[in-house]
Amino acid sequence: MRILIVDDEKDIQALFEQRFRKEIKNNELELAFAYSGEEALSYLTEKEQHAILILSDINMPGMSGLDLLAKIKQKYSQPPPMVMMITAYGDEENYNTAMKLGADDF
């Protein structure tokens, strides 16, 4: 299972890699990282459909997580990857927008 994590904080990579160190070692999980919405999209285009689950931050400079979510849901309709949003701005407006755009979890 491959997970794509999108966040503009680079240290997030070290954190995830250590947290899931066992799973990675046992080849249960494969992690990929992107530091912006643009990067995430180009990753998805190159390695189509490889990511089953996408974790994305909302608040990023440039393309925001919500933009990315909308683009993913539009482009990869069959079968769509799961997209979960992670963010510090867990307010209702963001939640509703994300759900409307088809986020699978928040």
Binding site: L15, Q18, R19, R21, N59, A88, Y89
Partner: peptide
């Protein structure tokens, strides 16, 4: 608040992960 929240999250998470390690 947001600027502080991010580094604090990292501090907490890295500390937690280090414990597991």
């Amino acid at each position: 608040a947001h600027e502080i929240q991010n580094p604090l999250n990292f501090v907490n998470n890295f500390a937690e992960v280090s414990g597991e390690l």
